[in-house]
Nucleic acid binder design. Sequence first.
DNA 1: AGCACA
Length: 473
Amino acid sequence: MSTSGQPQFRYTQTPSKVLHLRNLPWECIEEELIELCKPFGKIVNTKCNVGANRNQAFVEFADLNQAISMVSYYASSSEPAQVRGKTVYIQYSNRHEIVNNKSPGDVPGNVLLVTIEGVEVGDVSIDVIHLVFSAFGFVHKIATFEKAAGFQALIQFSDAETASAARNALNERSIPRYLLPEHVNSCHLRISYSAHTDLNIKFQSHRSRDYTNPYLPVNPTAIEGVVQPALGPDGKRKEPESNVLLASIENMQYAVNVDVLHTVFSAFGTVQKIAIFEKNGQTQALVQYPDVSIAAVAREALEGHCIYDGGYCKLHLSYSRHTDLNVKAYSDKSRDYTIPDASLLASQVSGLPGAPAVWQNPRPGPIYAGNDYNTGGSVPAQYPSRQMAPWDASMQAGRAPFGSVPSTYPGQNFAVATSQIPSAVSSMGFSSGFPPNVRPGGASSSSQLQPGIPPNVRPSGGPPPGHPTYYGQ
DNA sequence: AGCACA
């Protein structure tokens, strides 16, 4: 104890493979140390950013003589050791090896782990990340994911040199604002090295890319991509618009058939075709409008809304790549409302004044003539005025929107307790997509929803007075 | 400008 652990001072230090460097520029990086020291021997370890000012470092040579040669050289040199123009003071360290030199993230490799701070999921698209990091070399692969640390991305370069060039340039910096959505204020990149050398990308998707393999299949279950469309370099949604919407129906506790979907989507314009199908165990539907603008309004209005109360049959909408569906004109999974069906049309509007001949409707509703159609009340009531609701006859403006779509289809068994009865298609979706000049009549306005208010909250919690319960008891 | 790490 008495002789060990004594501080050692200039000129009295015993040589060590480890050199202590002081007065380094702030956040001096390993590459700069190596550049300075490698003329004297093989560097086996470094420790950067030591000390309160993070301006000290340690360098460990493979051999003691190499360290000695460096100290000796600068002891007698007229030119001091320099990094970025700053004089660096070099001495033997009082330790003989660098221990715990690096956290794993400091071990250079060809794959970077990038933590993007201060952003929400979806604010920074994989395309923006690709753009930013491609400035340093070919980006082979990107995988993004959510961790406790935040939004992270693994970015694979060809080699560690390219990766470290990107890291040195971008670490602790921010992605340029013009590449980000407007609401993003800060976007700090914290970059370390990943232990990975080759990422295993299974699909091209909104969260992972393999730029070396353009034939890699697109993720078939990229449903989340629907909820969070990728952002283009301009920060705007780049999902191409279409007149055909793809609806994914989540939590489908109740049957959703073609007619229900027709009722829901007709509120925004003519529905031309509908196709329902199963994908990965989830029901999806394609709904075709005549043009993109109607589809856009419907998408905006219906996205995230539930067809029925209680979070049942929640809709997620995206634009389909299709523009014209090829569907069976009339099946239980599809409908083509553009094909005039004599028998349907004949029965459809018989006896109706002002029968909407022009408004080629579609709805095979009258097939169910005799069933209580009154229940559907408020959906038609909220039709944009330029359109004529197909089932005008039975519709009464002003009714509360508790129409129970399922009830109109007696073939279906909705024998559930009344308290569990889903309230209705009718009350959904009108929070924003509605033409402003259209005022639903009378009492139904009580159910008009303000933006931000969940669509299916029943104003009074039960079927409207005077309406029979249409469900099996 | 004077010695880290856990």
